Amino acid sequence: MNTRRRISLVIPFYNEELNVDNTLAAIARVVDPQRYDWELVAINDGSRDATLAKLQAASPSNFELIVVDLSRNFGKEAALSAGLSQASGDAIIPLDADLQDPPEMIAAMLEKWEQGFEVVLARRADRSSDGFLKRQSAAGFYRVMNRLSEVKIPDNVGDFRLMDRCVVEVVSSLPENRRFMKGLFAWAGFRTTSIDYARPEREFGETKFSGWKLWNLAVEGITSFSIAPLKIWTYIGVFVALMSFGYGSFIILRTAIQGVDVPGYASLLTVVLFMSGLQLIGLGVIGEYLGRVYLESKRRPPFVIRSVQQRGGKAAE
């Protein structure tokens, strides 16, 4: 009877045909089939290039390749959720297909896991491969997120981490379909440690996260784990109401003493536009939360799997 524990690597792929061969080769170099059984769960997230064909043609010898083909592009968060649902390992490690999450760190993660930690975070100690704007925006996001949310997200930690089976079962059991995975991982808790690494540059292809997508991901994270924006607008409303009451009292008092004054068009227009702007911003914040409630109420699944194929490893012998 095989008593060795199983390690699952989970990698979402979206238009990564240039990285498929390099990624599989890098995984093959770092896995140790003498100590663990290995599987790589590769999720094709609706790629429009030859990514799926390359994955289905691969036949690795020292690990099992499970190709999960989604029915369309659902986004990285949903693709990662699909991979976690198919992973059968005792420990699961998500990482990116562009090799900016170096597979060489897996051995150090497993050592921490063997010491009893249930979550091993990979912290980016050096982000010089990222542009200045991306580094500053990422730092700003973590500061804002951790001030607004009760769930603290570790700085400079992405999806690259090791999670014990018990952690993945908790995350996979959560019913929400608008999934901000970094927040869900942090919310689950468990015994956690971290290791530092330098994030290398992407060798092939281009990043799929534009500035707009990163902004939407940040909004998703904040609204998923904090109601502070709603509370802030409550305080803003109280402050503006008090200011309006004070200004109204001043106008009444001045009129009673000095008589009726000719109203000023410019000042009146300024106040109206200012109040209208505040109301529209407040409605926008409420709309963000209401939209997420609407989407969650439909109870649609976060992803749809077209097929699952097993390649290579012991399954192919």
Rank of each mutant, 00 (worst) to 15 (best):
F303L: 11
R191Q: 10
V304H: 14
K112Y: 09
A108I: 00
G246Q: 12
L40R: 07
A25D: 00
F132Y: 13
A125T: 11
L253T: 11
T3M: 05
A198G: 10
L52P: 03
G282E: 13
S173L: 13
Q258D: 06
F141M: 07
D130T: 06
L290Q: 13
I153Y: 15
F74W: 05
G140R: 06
V240E: 13
K208Y: 07
E104G: 08
R4T: 00
T193A: 06
N19Y: 07
D196C: 13
R179D: 06
S249H: 12
T23E: 09
V272Q: 11
W233P: 09
E220P: 03
E206A: 11
S129D: 05
G259I: 02
L110V: 01
R179H: 12
Q279K: 09
G246I: 12
D69R: 09
A188F: 08
A28V: 04
A91Q: 07
L253C: 14
P200K: 05
S226P: 02
L18F: 06
Y197D: 10
A53M: 11
T51R: 10
P302I: 09
A82L: 04
L9H: 00
D196G: 09
I281E: 12
I153V: 15
R161D: 08
W38R: 01
S8H: 13
Y14I: 07
T207P: 08
L230F: 10
E206T: 14
I227Y: 08
E176S: 14
N19M: 14
S276T: 11
R191L: 10
F250D: 13
F225C: 02
D155Q: 15
L230E: 11
L162I: 03
Q279S: 12
E118Q: 11
V20C: 05
L148P: 01
N22H: 08
V308S: 00
S173G: 15
K298R: 14
S149C: 08
R254A: 10
F185C: 03
Q115M: 07
V308A: 04
G140N: 10
S59C: 10
Y36E: 01
G116A: 05
G116W: 02
V170N: 14
R299F: 12
V271G: 15
R165H: 12
F239V: 14
A50V: 08
G237F: 08
N2K: 00
R4N: 00
R191N: 02
G291P: 01
A91Y: 06
W215Y: 09
E317N: 00
K298Y: 03
A25V: 00
T234Q: 15
G140V: 05
K208H: 10
S8M: 13
K208M: 11
L280V: 13
G221R: 01
V167E: 07
V41N: 04
S61H: 02
S244D: 13
I252Y: 09
I305A: 03
T3W: 01
N62C: 00
S81T: 04
W215A: 06
V293P: 00
V157L: 14
